[in-house]
Design a binder for these strands. Structure first.
Ligand SMILES: [Mn+2]
Ligand SMILES: [Mn+2]
Ligand SMILES: [Mn+2]
Ligand SMILES: [Mn+2]
Lengths: 225, 225
DNA sequence: TAAGAAATTTAGTTGTGTCTAAATTGTATA
DNA sequence: TATACAATTTAGACACAACTAAATTTCTTA
């Protein structure tokens, strides 16, 4: 009852949070794939998390897992650490936005609540990380998100970039080159039906750029009024 | 050959470094006591560190352990991390000097060489931590120490505090109250033979204070010319 | 110098988190 | 709806780093 969670347990809970947000539940094979752990090992950990006191996940054999309120709290705790650390490294130590993830992945398990609070204060209690991902506040509440994929932006609509999937550094480096980051203003010029690319005008730039579909679906924007 | 060290291994190497500096070698029971691990478990780890490739310690049954050059390098790496982190927390995040140790103890194993370098740069490549302990430089070289215990300071001799044992927070809080920290100037007024206390004049203060022997042997000073 | 005490090592066990191989369950489709 | 394939679980093993209990070695001192 209420024993501190291991790094492995915390990583599983974060992964279950991510997958069940996206697909309603986290399947064994999805977890295995994301965590780069064999499915048999995942099954073992799911059984353990479900039998913890208090239970951290709801798990039925062959039906995947979802977080209990306790499990969700633990996941959000790590997500808050992760995103605060990413922003801290970027703002205070000059890391590029494609370099912060790996460092945060280790540090999130090692910092104290005291350090979390001091970093948050030093950053002015921010609500977005360098990739635009929302940072849960001190009570683990997260701001509501209104942004949608750039691929769904209608032509002629001015919009502002809010968030970028932070999962592969090469996308981040590419966007950096293009001059796209959260808060950049953009307008869709045209969706090109044959190759599914997007022609995009970036505010303050001469000529529009062509965005491949992979990038357009990993970039999230809000309409400007 | 050349596999990254576990946190447990790094902690043992740091402990062996500390004990062999102080006593020439690290005995099993001293390690067990310092690390709060049972002696039988220490024996197991010593065998493992000695048989590593390359060997990290020299170990003969019943004779304790000393570091090999590889082991010493690994220990200094962690010591550099630890002390840089302590100073960073103190200088950049407003931690008191008695609060930094515990946080650094966990973070030292989690930061990358990149982060080490960025923190060092942000701090101006410092050579002392908040307790005055020397920080090994990028090549793991440490400045030569000239300070000696305050308990050995002759009466009337002006001296400057350089370093304080950082092992228990209560001593640090006590010294804070007294207004003693690295760079504070002091003069011994008298060594009191019966109770082994020291009467000490602190620069900028009205009246001398009486220092118990425990504190006087954990404070290190340099003579002023 | 021979106990007796203290320190250390050996032997065997445990919990955690991974793995491989084999068995089972669920799903899609022919 | 039977079968084949995919997903998942079970079973058994392993590495790591701790533990306890017992055996052994070394040190101290009478
Ligand atoms: Mn937290
Ligand atoms: Mn991020
Ligand atoms: Mn380093
Ligand atoms: Mn220190």
């Amino acid at each position: 009852m209420k024993v501190p969670l291991s790094q492995a347990e915390q990583d599983y809970l974060k992964a279950i949070y991510r997958l069940s947000n996206r697909y309603g539940r986290a399947a064994t094979s999805q977890l295995a794939n994301w965590l780069e752990i064999k499915p048999a090992s995942v099954t073992g950990m799911l059984r353990k998390l479900a039998q913890a006191d208090p239970p951290l996940i709801a798990y039925k054999k062959h039906k995947g897992a979802t977080l209990t309120p306790d499990g969700e709290r633990a996941a959000l705790e790590m997500i808050r650490h992760h995103r605060l650390i990413e922003l801290y490294l970027h703002e205070k130590l000059g890391y590029a936005w494609d370099e912060v993830h790996e460092e945060a992945e280790r540090l999130e398990h090692a910092i104290s609540e005291e350090m979390e609070a001091r970093m948050a204060a030093a950053l002015g209690h921010p609500c977005r990380d360098p990739h635009g991902d929302p940072i849960p506040d001190h009570n683990l509440e997260m701001i509501a998100l209104s942004e949608f994929p750039l691929s769904e932006l209608g032509p002629g609509q001015p919009a502002v970039v809010r968030r970028v999937r932070d999962e592969e550094p090469s996308l981040l480096q590419y966007l950096d080159l293009l001059g796209i980051r959260p808060s950049t203003q953009v307008t869709a010029v045209a969706h090109n039906k044959h190759d599914h690319t997007l022609t995009l005008q970036i505010a303050g730039q001469e000529r529009p750029v062509v965005i491949p579909p992979r990038a357009a679906s990993e970039l999230f924007v809000d309409l400007m009024e």
